[in-house]
Amino acid sequence: MKVFWAELSRDLLLAYRRKGDLLNPLLFFVMVLALFPLGVSPAPDFLSQLAPGVLWVAALLAALLSLDNLFKSDFEDGTLEQLLLSSESTYPIALAKALVHWLTTGLPLALLAPLLAVMLFLPSHAIPTLVVSLLIGTPTLSLIGAIASALTVGLKKGGVLISLLVIPLYIPVLIFGASAVQNATQHLPVQAYLAILGSMLALSIVLAPFAIAASLRVSVSS
């Protein structure tokens, strides 16, 4: 537990010192969403139908974009090697890393989402569901994404490869997240979707850190 908090506070401090990196996924999220009215149609009716899916896809891509840097700097300056060599368990370290990724991308995205939802004419009664579904769904994205990030950290050109590895694994989260918002727009119950998103989160909290730690070991040993 001590390791977890130490790693968490260290990474948060590092993230705070590099404020530019914090902003990039958010800007990406906003810009991608601005493309849809321009590319498809600015008609409010049409956009409000499109909004649940588009908001979720854009959030997913924004989370994907920032994965590349998750372990990169620690890998390059040798911190990662020291972390893995230490006698502490790697599980809390991996969990803390993924959590920091979520705190710096998923959480701000979820908080920013209502503004963009209004711009895309999502019915206002669906906005709470959108925020909640993003809050529950994006940590899963961070945890799964961290596995791919850990696998590719030793490679020179990991960027596109991460997307290839991760997108198929993101599909269930996308389906249930977007369906929850879709149902909310039609005043249908959403608890089941949120519960499934929650169970996927629980499963990935339990399992993903092991895969992350194993992948980091492979990457560091090579």
């Binding site: 590719t152 490679l155 990991g158 490869l161 290839l164 694994l169 194993a214 992948s215 090579s222």
Partner: peptide, 30 residues
């Protein structure tokens, strides 16, 4: 893609094995 991106066959094999196992857990969910 992961195989072809890695140069050493031993590390590639272990990385791919992890990915395949993660995928195996995911296949029923998907």
């Amino acid at each position: 893609a992961l195989y072809s991106a890695m140069e050493k066959p031993e590390t590639a094999a272990r990385s791919v094995a992890i990915l395949a196992l993660v995928g195996l857990v995911n296949i029923p969910i998907i």
